[in-house]
Amino acid sequence: MQKLNFPSYPFRFKNSENKVAIFDEIRKKFVILTPEEWVRQHVIQFLLLEKNYPKSHINVEKLLKINDLKKRYDVVVFNPDGTIFILVECKAPEIKISQGTFDQIARYNMTLNAQYLMVTNGHNHYFCQMDYKQELYQFLQELPNYQLL
């Protein structure tokens, strides 16, 4: 897999039915290593090791219903009260981040109401803080660390 714009992390791999799988610490299982999964696993390690979010506050690839459509979010970080602090949308490295990507995470967030959004393809990362009162979002240089909450 290609080098991404994240620090290097020690991942566990195995071959399964002629496919490479990577261990997901959150789901506690090996998952098939696709380009998007490579980005997702880097995001998880980034949240755990760089931003110090507890493993118990992170959830990966769960079903989400939007207007009777079934969708899956990539990664969320929960607040201790169960509300969503960060919503992350991951794309494969070869996928360009576009307005459509931001529209997708905005649709998901209409249901989830996260305080922060992150969009990444592993090379380019975008961070936003939501302002629900003024109905806008502000781009940030980075996400807050867990200790700062």
Rank of each mutant, 00 (worst) to 15 (best):
C128Q: 07
H57Y: 08
V75K: 01
R12H: 06
A114Q: 01
P144A: 08
M130F: 07
L117S: 05
R72F: 15
I86Y: 07
L143Y: 12
D103H: 10
N79W: 09
W38Q: 07
K51C: 09
E94L: 14
L143P: 05
A106I: 12
A106D: 07
K28S: 12
N113I: 01
V119R: 01
N5G: 05
N18I: 01
E25L: 14
K3C: 04
L143V: 11
I22V: 15
N18M: 02
G100S: 14
A92F: 14
N79Y: 12
L47H: 03
T34N: 01
S56G: 02
Q141L: 14
Q2S: 09
F127R: 03
V75F: 11
K28Q: 13
L117G: 04
E94D: 13
T34K: 02
Y126W: 10
M118F: 09
T111A: 15
L47I: 03
F30E: 02
Y116S: 07
P80G: 08
Y108P: 01
F78N: 12
K19D: 00
E89A: 13
E142F: 12
H57P: 00
I22H: 03
E17S: 11
I26W: 04
Q147R: 06
L48R: 04
V119P: 01
N79E: 08
Y146A: 14
K51E: 02
R12G: 00
I44T: 08
L117T: 03
R12A: 12
I86A: 10
S16N: 07
K91N: 09
Q147E: 06
R72E: 11
F46H: 14
Q2P: 12
Q99Y: 13
